[in-house]
Design a protein around this nucleic acid. Sequence first.
RNA 1: GGACAGGUGGCCGAGUGGUUAAAGGCAGCAGACUGUAAAUCUGCCCGGGUUUCCGUACGCUGGUUCGAAUCCAGCCCUGUCCA
Length: 374
Amino acid sequence: MTDRFAFSIAATDGAARTGVIRMQRGEIRTPAFMPVGTAATVKAMRPAEVRATGADIILGNTYHLMLRPTAERMARLGGLHNFMGWDRPILTDSGGYQVMSLSALTKQSEEGVAFQSHLDGSRHMLTPERSMEIQRLLGSDIVMAFDECPPNGVDDKRAEASMERSMRWAARSRAGFDAGEEHAARSALFGIQQGSLDEKLRARSAAALTEIGFDGYAIGGLAVGEGQAAMFGVLDFAPAQLPADKPRYLMGVGKPDDLVGAVARGVDMFDCVLPTRSGRNGQAFTRDGPVNIRNAKHAEDQAPLDSSCACPVCTTWSRAYLHHLVRSGEMLGAMLMTQHNLHFYQDLMQGMRDAIGAGSFAAFQSDFDARYRK
RNA sequence: GGACAGGUGGCCGAGUGGUUAAAGGCAGCAGACUGUAAAUCUGCCCGGGUUUCCGUACGCUGGUUCGAAUCCAGCCCUGUCCA
């Protein structure tokens, strides 16, 4: 029987680490980038294509799936993996992020969050216990604790109160997860550190989480508008506050240069909608920086998106063709742009894993910066 | 030849005496997007002057009026119908 969850670090280079997480549904090479598949689909991509980009794990979302098709229906249909045709690990977010992003439709209390569905206005309640139940019904491999992700710029008092509530919810999440014994025996639970930009709050949050005990530790509440400098400022101390022998997951991040900077500071896992959403919106990520394929200058450019990219898109189609597809609103444009972006992200992660393994991460980082941020 | 309808900024299309450089859409030129209410959103989009300035503009010419894309006359053109 394969381990439920085992993280082993193969090499470190400065604060950066590379290794592997072993789970029953497969291995996750770290540092890892997890494409976001909120509604049981990585938008514009088939599961086999997602896998072909190099992804070991994808995300699903508690909030979206509880509303449609509902967790109970998903369970009747054999769980999320069976439903969407992805047999490797899936990490499910707890709905905590929607507490912030849908704040106009929520009412928060110590018990949990009362939501009004953005789909039909129907009322729902999300608590740590219910979030754990939903993630169990979905058949999640990595379950995220139910937390509160405060928006950027909250004052110290609110940041502290929010962090402390998230820590109480983390303990309830732990208990709720453990109550689902059968599911808990084959999946993992991650806690989420909060505390805004404050080092002391972050330290208290990390201590509270470590006391409870989790399989992995996420850094939450970043990339919400504070800017890269402020985010890196937090990452200069936050990863070291978390247990060194467990994966550290920076939630919702980020741009390619965010990933490189965060890995350099000791982060092992990431997820972000950017490669998929930007792909649909006409932005491609390349080794030479982002490209807006809609721009007129690409209309007759026969070069690939990224001359150093070996992905199926770059080896087959020109910028001119992608420019035409995207401008025409053709769905293939969104599909190909997404495919390239996910390949690019996974190539970037592989490059970082290799560099850390070779002890040359600093050189990798300066080479990346020189070209990407030129 | 006659009867209607109509000619508005690259295109479509509102407006029918002043608050109109002229709604809105499209096209065009850029920008944004970070645990996805996003195949979305934002800005610009007559010319010139790098805030509230000037010029030109609603088929053409002339007229009425303090003032016209909006009213009148003639002309030109387009569509439909009748001959």
